[in-house]
Amino acid sequence: MVEFTPLSGAVGGFVIGLAAVLFMAVNGRVAGISGILAGVLTPVRGDWAWRAAFMAGLFAAPLAFWLATSEKPQVVFDHPLWLVALGGVLVGFGARLGGGCTSGHGVCGMARLSRRSIAATATFMATAMISVFVLHHLAGF
């Protein structure tokens, strides 16, 4: 199974926060990935290129890391693909309906002490933990 990695977790978390702060300082926006991605899928004139560029940066990151360290980032799925696909639909639908995801609500919104973001984060953490319990310990996935 996976091991607790607090040091790389803290460094990575700091870098994520730094990116969120820089995005506010330079572009003046919240770094909410689901909101940025939604604008890539439904283009508005003059408001598309920066969104696509942000996604390209996210996509390039593991490749840059791999090039720089010769260490390929691990991506391990223990779940069947149909569950991954169903999860994707719910993540996309839920993030848009709820106005944000782990980055927009969980990091940027909570850092602004937004009541909505605190409520959203508490809700998705709770339903995610309950779902993993049901999937792993009751359903046997």
Partner: peptide, 27 residues
């Protein structure tokens, strides 16, 4: 609340949320 609730269920099913999914797609 409904959106966040559904988001959490999907997050648990896949182990991915939007940002990590875009990065994970590369490797």
């Amino acid at each position: 609340l409904i959106g966040a609730g559904l988001f959490g269920v999907g997050w648990a099913m896949a182990g991915l949320c939007p940002g990590p999914a875009i990065s994970a797609a590369a490797v």
